[in-house]
Amino acid sequence: MLTVVKVMTVHQDDIEKLAELARVRIPAEEAAEVTARIATILGLVDQLQSVDTAAVEPMANPLDAVQRLRADAVTEANQREAFQAIAPAVENGLYLVPKVIE
């Protein structure tokens, strides 16, 4: 039923770049295996390229619905205490992260 047009080649350093973009780390010993798996998935996905979609509008929503607008009203009260009770590091009402250098 499907024609595979081309098999996408993904290299290990591509995967490392993606991992950096996504802020995940692939341990060196797993990099090759992860690369191979992703290449297989992308191979599957390359089947899409065989379909002619020149005249097809991308479908963002299954019902082709449009955005509803909300009245401009303040409905949320301050819940800082509840939210920060589950935060890993806070001080004086601020969330803490390692120093950001600009």
């Binding site: 899409l48 509008e57 991308p58």
Partner: peptide, 15 residues
Amino acid sequence: DAYYRKAQQVRRLIR
């Protein structure tokens, strides 16, 4: 374009 947009187009064909 080649992936996400293409997939959203094929999605319309599937529907």
